[in-house]
Simulated scan of single mutants.
Amino acid sequence: MAEIVLKNVNKRWGNFVGVKDFDLTIPDREFLVLLGPSGCGKTTTMRMIAGLEDPTEGEIWIGDRMVNNVDPKDRDISMVFQSYGLYPNMNVYENIRFPLKVRKVPEAEHKERVMRASAMVELDDFLHRKPAALSGGQRQRVALARAIVREPNVFLMDEPLSNLDAKLRVSTRAQIKNLSHELKVTTIYVTHDQIEAMTLADRVVVMEKGIVQQVGTPTDIYDNPANTFVASFIGNPAMNLMEGELKDGVFTGKNVTIPGLTGSNGPVTLGFRAEDASIATSTGQIDAPVYSMELLGDATMVTVKAGGALVAVKADKEYRSEIGAPVSIAVPAEICHLFDVATGQRLT
């Protein structure tokens, strides 16, 4: 049982607040992703769970014991870092085996456990090589195998894919997803990449400036962002956000008129996803000239400038237009989200 509980955890350095009032229960075997931009507190939170940083206030529980004063080596966790941290003088087999030697696991068990971990990440053909003879993706798999061989209660992964190229990130991401299914170990994964978060997580914690903005499944966060920060951070492209006025159920802004909305009269921020809107065949709700057009293969991304904001919409892959040509965009009321202009919070 490796349920992790953080109770009102804070981390400060002088007047600087790194993490504020972090309060969360991570159930046993959950794959939780801490997501946010650089400096938002996600790595600091992970380091406090690992014991590499001490919380200023609050409690951290792993299983049935509070670990605030427990050394990292006694917390039964394995970490995978952004830098692979491999020993250059050891071959792959010895790098994977090293945690077993340090923890004085009986030597009779070493080969079986190393080979099992190696097979999980498809390294059997590289066990004799040293790290210098491996690609970046292979080195990352060695780091994963070294964490797996420990058979810990908790995995902590700190941006493990950020040093890989785009193609390797996709394949290694799939490998991590499969490993989490096979190993069924509580995992906390730190990333600034929202695609990694959406594809890997059971739940996502979105953070900004040390504060949790929203916790939920990837679908919850994508479909119902709690505020404009989450709306603008999740999604590729991010949610379109436009400021305007809501009066008697009609949103108006420069080049924009969207009827059929529900809410109190006054200034609001309106949001909608690019894939939920479409190029209108007749009169739409947004009329503006084409600002840019990008061919994506499976679709064409059309961007216009309306009301001072860049607004993107996904059109059919065959759609073509010229920059500057007028276009009308259909934005049904049911796909729209409304946010408070002052606070950015979602309006229900």
Rank of each mutant, 00 (worst) to 15 (best):
M1A: 12
V5I: 14
L6M: 15
N8T: 12
N10M: 02
W13V: 12
G14E: 07
N15H: 13
V19K: 04
K20E: 15
D21T: 05
I26M: 03
R29W: 00
E30L: 02
S38F: 01
C40W: 03
C40P: 02
G41H: 05
T44Y: 10
M48A: 08
G51W: 06
L52T: 09
E53Q: 13
T56C: 07
G63Q: 13
D64V: 01
R65I: 12
P72Q: 05
K73W: 02
D74H: 14
Q82G: 02
S83A: 14
Y84R: 06
R97L: 12
F98E: 11
L100Q: 10
R103Y: 04
R103H: 01
K104Y: 02
V105P: 02
E107M: 05
A108Y: 01
E109W: 02
H110N: 01
R116P: 00
R116A: 15
S118D: 03
F126P: 00
F126G: 02
H128C: 00
H128Y: 12
R129P: 04
G136I: 10
G136N: 09
R139S: 08
R141G: 09
A145G: 08
A147P: 11
N153S: 15
F155I: 04
D158G: 08
D158P: 04
A166K: 11
K167L: 11
K167P: 01
V170D: 04
K177P: 00
K177S: 12
N178D: 13
N178H: 12
N178G: 00
L179Q: 03
S180Y: 01
H181N: 02
K184T: 07
K184N: 14
T186F: 05
Y189L: 08
Y189A: 09
V190M: 07
V190L: 08
H192I: 02
I195F: 04
A197I: 03
D202G: 03
R203F: 07
V206T: 07
Q214P: 09
T219A: 13
D223R: 15
A226M: 10
F229G: 08
G235W: 12
P237F: 11
G244H: 09
L246Y: 03
D248N: 15
V250D: 06
V250P: 05
G253R: 01
N255I: 00
V256D: 00
P259S: 07
L261D: 05
T262Q: 13
G266Y: 04
T269P: 00
L270T: 01
G271M: 08
G271T: 03
F272C: 10
A274P: 04
S278N: 06
I286K: 01
A288T: 07
P289L: 01
Y291Q: 12
T300F: 10
V302F: 10
T303Y: 01
V304F: 08
K305V: 13
K305S: 13
A309W: 03
A312Q: 13
K314M: 15
K314V: 00
D316R: 10
R320Y: 04
R320K: 13
S321V: 14
S321H: 07
S321R: 13
G324Q: 10
V327R: 09
S328L: 11
I329Y: 06
I329W: 06
V331M: 12
P332H: 11
E334N: 14
E334L: 06
C336W: 04
C336R: 01
F339N: 09
D340R: 09
V341K: 15
G344A: 02
L347I: 15
